[in-house]
Amino acid sequence: MKLDNTVAAVVTGGASGLGAATARALAAKGVKVAIFDLQKEKGEAVAAEIGGVFCEVNVTSDESVDAGFAKARAAHGQERILVNCAGTGNAIKTASRSKETGEIKHFPMDAFNWIIQINLVGTFRCIAKSAAGMMTLDPCDEFGERGAIVNTASVAAEDGQMGQAAYSASKGGVVGMTLPIARDLMSEGIRVNTILPGIFNTPLLQGAPDNVKAALAASVPFPKRLGQPEEYANLALCMIETGYFNGEDVRLDGAIRMAPR
């Protein structure tokens, strides 16, 4: 797909981190970008910087997502690109015993469901609604391409650590649905791919002590550093621009394989 000012995109989680870097990279190509996020102040700032539009969206709500797409399409027209970066995580063992009291607790089901609803169901919700919109478009090339979707999973989908049962399940679900969705949409000319980032220098880590970040960087085989959001954006744009890129799940992690803890 050729990226220019005739193309519109939606980036969920676009107010910061991987999403903000992707929004900036798309805008630098001339693409009209709408940012979906709950961080209103940050989202509006990024949208103003790139000449885009901010839509306050909760990906766990049909009504909120519908309103976001309506606002984005009113401003820029039907999107040909969707990049799903909205997500969150927690760290809770499936069952654990207190060292102090011996009390046994299990993972709270509402906390497990919360992660699944945001990371997995929220991603699928945005895919389904965006794909339905893309199907109304005329193809943009001689092969019938109408759109491209990029999702964000995590290396935890394949080698999750202790306490990551919910997070790994949600991201494993994103990986698992990539190929079936690509097959669902193949006759409509809509491609679907997923990135599995490793340890990236996002807002989640920026507040960590320097020694913690140094230890994480040292655990990466090569290069021994944290991933940069711009590197995620580069891969996302490669997936969008390369027409033969479809149905793939790609790790972006410096060859790291996460240890149990």
Results as ranks from 00 to 15, higher is better:
F112T: 14
N58K: 10
V46W: 00
M109S: 13
Y232V: 00
D110C: 13
G19R: 00
D37I: 00
A166D: 15
T6I: 05
S130N: 11
E49L: 02
R125Q: 11
F124A: 07
D62E: 14
N201T: 12
A217I: 07
G172A: 11
G13T: 02
Q228V: 05
G43N: 05
A47D: 07
V121P: 08
D253N: 07
S187V: 12
A169P: 15
D138G: 11
A28D: 01
P221M: 12
Q206E: 11
T101F: 04
T242V: 05
N58R: 09
A255Y: 09
N84M: 08
G17K: 08
P108H: 10
Q164Y: 09
P139H: 15
I35Y: 02
G160I: 12
A156W: 09
E63Q: 05
F36T: 01
N90D: 14
P223S: 08
N119W: 02
M239R: 11
A157Y: 09
F107N: 05
E44C: 04
G87C: 08
K32W: 02
G30Q: 02
I195D: 08
I181L: 15
G144C: 10
C85H: 09
K40S: 06
Q228C: 08
G77Q: 05
A91E: 13
G133N: 14
V83Q: 00
E41G: 03
K32Y: 00
F69G: 08
I195L: 04
Q228N: 09
N234P: 01
S16D: 08
G147P: 08
F143Y: 14
N246G: 06
I190H: 00
T88I: 14
I181P: 00
R24W: 02
D253Y: 00
A255F: 11
T94R: 05
I81W: 10
R80D: 01
F245G: 01
G163E: 09
D62H: 02
I149W: 09
S130A: 13
Q228K: 10
M134G: 04
P209H: 13
A214S: 06
L38F: 07
V33P: 01
F245R: 01
A86Y: 06
S168N: 03
L204F: 15
S168I: 09
W114Y: 15
S98C: 11
P139L: 15
P209A: 07
V121W: 14
A20G: 08
